[in-house]
Design a protein around this nucleic acid. Structure first.
Lengths: 159, 159
DNA sequence: GATTTCCTACTCGGATACGGTGTGTCCGAGTGAAACTGG
DNA sequence: CCAGTTTCACTCGGACACACCGTATCCGAGTAGGAAATC
């Protein structure tokens, strides 16, 4: 899995602290975790295309959450970065070889593929069951003072 | 995910049909699905290291299942090929940046990491819940005649 | 004919190239705010 | 003082290199079986 997923999740969480009123530039989001700014910008763009973030160019521009945190699931972020293709790619090799008959025999799904799909479905279900708001709640419980400090840091020197 | 996982699963299934009495060469396993023989051999080696298969060199050598099919789970095969590292790599970027304090503050786990771990655990649990024997049973139900034909093909011209 | 020796073909196993994708960087198009000018 | 215009710094967005890992191939080490030679 791409490390862009990790960056995107942390950035979404930070944007959740800041709130939708103020836009945060990719450079500033990168500075918060010491990430390469241009590359982070590149990673955030699929999130904007997926309508998880909104991006505004120009001065006082930047990124902000496009929806309420409770409406953005972890699955949304992951699929935005990694794409919606299954991680296990079934190339249907069962249809190749000396014993492979006519393609009509293979209308029923490949059972190995099906088994992997079940596992992947469980993974997706778990990811879809948690949203950004759950994360903010959990973090504010584990680190009561942190959210305000983060919010203040993003407000300061931002304009 | 590597396509080697798909190959390994199909090969393990075929070896389950053949049974542990006879060894099957990588070349013959490859021919059954029209795969590049040398590369398939390379993919089967981690399975041998993981003691899922046993490999014997020399004439009449090849691969065979090292354990009973019901003792080999899909998770075993996947981790043998892909490794046991988590697919989501937490690089602890929360510890980097201007607001990152001393490392002692980060003894509690990264909550984003924890959330991804939960999803991955669900995935692993689903994979561990199915073994090779389940697959053979399912296939023999969906395609009653297939197992015997596969068995015969691997027996013929093999010695 | 039995036994020992040698040889040969066969198999896995690791070492060696190639290509694609993730990683990282740079520059241009567009925008909004601020400054300047004129009334 | 205020409105209109111009300028300009700032931001995203996509185009351009680099590196690593998955893909693919080849050759050597080791082995088992059989053939040949010997007793």
């Amino acid at each position: 899995m791409t490390e862009g997923v990790e960056w995107a999740l942390h950035c979404c969480l930070n944007l959740a602290w800041v709130g939708p009123d103020r836009a945060v530039t990719a450079t500033r989001l990168a500075a918060f975790h010491e990430l390469p700014p241009a590359y982070l910008n590149k990673q955030l763009q699929p999130l904007a295309r997926a309508e998880i973030l909104t991006s505004t160019p120009g001065p006082r521009g930047g990124f902000r959450l496009a929806q309420a945190p409770e409406r953005i699931t972890l699955l949304d972020v992951v699929t935005a970065i990694e794409g919606s293709t299954e991680v296990f790619r079934c190339t249907e090799i069962r249809q190749q070889g000396p014993l492979a008959g006519s393609p009509e025999l293979y209308r029923d799904p490949c059972l190995i593929h099906a088994a992997m799909q079940r596992a992947e479905l469980a993974w997706r279900r778990e990811l879809a069951g948690q949203n950004l708001d759950d994360l903010t709640v959990a973090v504010s419980r584990a680190r009561p003072g942190l959210p305000d400090r983060v919010r203040r840091w993003f407000h300061e020197a931002a304009g």
